[in-house]
Design a binder for these strands. Structure first.
Lengths: 201, 201
DNA sequence: AAACACGATTAGACCAGTCGTCTAGTGACG
DNA sequence: CGTCACTAGACGACTGGTCTAATCGTGTTT
């Protein structure tokens, strides 16, 4: 564990660059050349940091979910405001991030899920763990919301969290296909309904 | 073999074979050689029937939605039974088709949607038209169900149809990622809830 | 301090595979 | 026969991921 000047930097730099490009074009459609060219990293270096393109994809998804979950935690644990607000702000932000960026899909679960699930068992496993972690947190948030009295859901919180996440995944897919935000707005309406907060908010 | 010119046969044979393979591996990850090899069609023929791989993908999706919509119409117009039954049978069948086949994803909207939307404008357009047509039919079915008294939904039928379809898309994506049917079962519970038929059925 | 050792990093060769083109060739039917 | 829809598959220009050999950087030894 010597303080390496480049190691971590270069590795992460490749991952960050790749996330933008692969988030836009998909996994199989993008070649190493394009990524490494954009990152200004010689091709030869790649296999020093990653064992294969497959292993690289695994690392890419791990890196993605790591920052995603950290951000999610930050958003859902923001103190002071009732949980409804935090949660609805999260969905609102989903609309925001998925809506404007057509080229670079911010949500890799949406962009890569279907493509990669049958392509690489390792990548599928990371996606599985990542999405399960997201749903788990959403479920905990719902329970917190019921505890602080700002939320009320029918049935177990985890079940609702699962359905909510699935709905937003599907809506994001439809948003990509239709190149419009209306599917996301439909998801927002459905979310309000599931959480029984039609009157206010 | 058959007196009828091969035109239609061969063309459709290529499309059918491709649907299986591409439904399993995705669009970019599959080369023409693999498809044509499996279909026992020489490469030279391919470019007689299709202008390019891109145009071929377009035709593939068109063919897919054509048969999908025909099947959907058949299912939803089955006479005799109330619309709830027909509709729930449709979702049940969704679980059935998406659940068992891991390799060849039957629903190309799920498998190719995210990948292709940013790859080919033509293919995206077909997906857009196809999914909109499905939602439209589901909305009409919901209205029929309200007319025959077997269904009751909150708000406009089209809105509910949109949300239902999105939920099932998302659930199918999660089913692929988790390699299990539980997301689809969650979608089924959510569907029952949205249609207010928790007690019976 | 100079030479060395050795792992970290890079450069580029490598071949299999990509899409798409193109010329020959087949065979059915007017 | 002649025509034309269709088949056959070699070919080219290119890109894919992978790997070996050379280079660089840094700490150690003398």
């Amino acid at each position: 564990m010597i303080a390496k000047p480049h190691s971590i930097d270069v590795r992460q730099h490749i991952l960050d660059t790749a996330q933008r490009i692969i988030g836009g074009k998909g996994f199989a459609a993008v070649g190493l050349n394009e990524i490494l060219g954009a990152a200004n990293v010689p091709k030869g270096s790649f296999y020093h940091y990653f064992e294969s393109k497959d292993a690289f994809g695994e690392a890419l998804l791990e890196s993605y979910f790591e920052t995603y979950l950290a951000d999610l935690d930050r958003r859902l644990s923001a103190p002071g405001r009732p949980m409804v607000d935090r949660m609805m702000a999260y969905w609102q932000n989903w609309i925001h991030t998925q809506g404007d960026c057509d080229a670079e899909c911010k949500c890799l679960a949406v962009k890569l899920g279907a493509e990669v699930a049958d392509l690489s068992e390792a990548m599928r496993a990371v996606l599985d763990r990542g999405t399960k972690a997201i749903i788990k947190r959403l479920g905990q948030a719902l329970e917190e919301g019921m505890a602080d009295g700002s939320l009320k859901v029918a049935g177990p919180a985890f079940s609702t969290a699962e359905t909510l996440y699935q709905t937003w995944l599907g809506a994001s897919l439809m948003a990509k296909i239709s190149r419009s935000a209306t599917p996301l707005e439909a998801a927002m309406r459905a979310t309000r309904m599931m959480l029984h907060l039609d009157p206010p908010h």
